[in-house]
């Protein structure tokens, strides 16, 4: 791609003989909000640190704006980082924390002041200049960390689970805030999180990682609606994952029944993973259903009920606005569009 700003090619990283990244390649486009998403230990933070220059990969190349920067130390890179635990300097006040990078580059005092105050304004901390960072709340510290990084006008901002320590409400606010800042500043954001909802809300592109490999790259809509394998399906939102057999094009067998579907191009009788989202299962009277089972439990979740239905030993998770009686015999229908079929993953990748 022409507008690639950060390129990773065949990156291998291992710690004490344990491989964390297995030949990872990734192109990140300029001015995008990109999220690296995955469970802990998947290599997402390591990937971020390779880009930031804090880890030198065992092999592979890192490119920045078309130029190789693999061995370049962190302080010479045009990227800045917002650290997980903020990492604000406790011996400096808010103003001096934000001014730190500019002072190192000997920016003239007048310009420095303008830029620091402008940045504090943007993160909503105007008037906090003289405050001691240790007296700020978690959300405020977070904003200082963002201002401290952005004041240097980096080409790329790296964010390592920056909202992890905040409470739910504040986290939602900061998500919107970060998205706004990214739009306003037009800087590439590379954001690491294990929270799939956060990833879907904020990102232009989501990179799902697992076990040191990239599982899928796509827009939030693609990732949610067209997961490429059972891991992605399971990690992004809730799913019913069953093993099935692809009878022929547009016909799959699972849960003891044949279903019409929209997928084709699989080998005849290929073993596949079948993924159905809980909200895509319709509960109908028992005789009208393609499948039928017994309601095991019903939990009220606010916007919907979570209903567990046992059918032939498999527990279906269903989200419905209609409640059901536990113990009742019900039918379930699944439309062809709602059945997602994917190639079997190796056990190791599960």
């Amino acid at each position: 791609m022409e507008n690639t700003i950060v390129g990773l090619k065949d990156i291998v990283v291992d710690f004490d003989g344990e491989t964390v990244l297995n030949g990872l390649s990734l192109d990140i486009h300029d001015k995008e909000f990109v999220t690296l998403l995955g469970p802990s230990g998947c290599g997402k933070t390591t990937t971020l640190r390779v880009i930031g220059g804090f880890i030198e990969p065992k092999s592979g190349n890192v490119f920045f704006d078309g130029k190789e920067i693999t061995g370049l130390p962190a302080y010479k890179r045009q990227v800045n980082t917002v650290f997980q635990k903020y990492a604000l300097f406790p011996h400096l006040n808010v103003y001096e924390n934000v001014a730190f990078g500019l002072r190192l580059r000997r920016v003239e005092e007048k310009e420095l002041k303008t830029r620091v105050l402008e940045m504090l304004e943007m993160v909503g901390l105007r008037g906090f200049e003289r405050r001691d960072t240790t007296t700020l709340s978690g959300g405020q510290q977070q904003r200082v960390a963002i201002a401290r990084a952005l004041v240097n006008h980096p080409r790329v901002l790296l964010l390592d689970e920056p909202l992890g320590a905040l409470d739910l409400k504040l986290r939602k606010e900061m998500q919107t805030e970060l998205k706004r800042i990214q739009k306003d500043t037009n800087i590439t954001f590379i954001y690491v999180t294990h929270d799939q909802e956060e990833a879907l809300t904020m990102s232009d592109t989501v990179v799902v990682m697992h076990g040191g490999y990239i599982q899928q790259i796509g827009t939030p809509v693609d990732i949610y609606n067209e997961p490429q394998n059972a891991f992605v399906a399971d990690f992004i939102g809730e799913s019913n994952i069953l093993s099935g057999v692809m009878e022929r094009d547009f016909c799959v067998e699972f849960a003891g029944q044949q279903f019409a579907c929209v997928d084709k191009g699989f080998a005849p009788r290929e073993l596949v993973d079948v993924v159905v989202r809980p909200e895509d299962v319709q509960v109908v009277p028992a005789i009208q259903g393609q499948l039928s089972g017994v309601v095991k439990s019903v939990i009220f979740k606010g916007v919907h009920y979570e209903i567990i239905v046992e059918q032939a030993g498999f527990e279906w998770k269903i989200h419905s606005t209609q409640s059901q009686q536990p113990g009742e015999f019900v039918g379930m229908n699944i439309g062809p569009d709602e059945i997602h079929i994917m190639h079997r993953m190796g056990e190791a990748a599960r």
């Binding site: 804090f54 130390p73 962190a74 980082t81 635990k85 300097f89 990078g101 190192l104 401290r148």
Partner: peptide
Amino acid sequence: DDSLIEAAEDLGSNLFQKVTK
């Protein structure tokens, strides 16, 4: 914390500046 030293490097400090600042 290591992250403080990393933060200093991230913001452009070389070895000497990491130590003194």
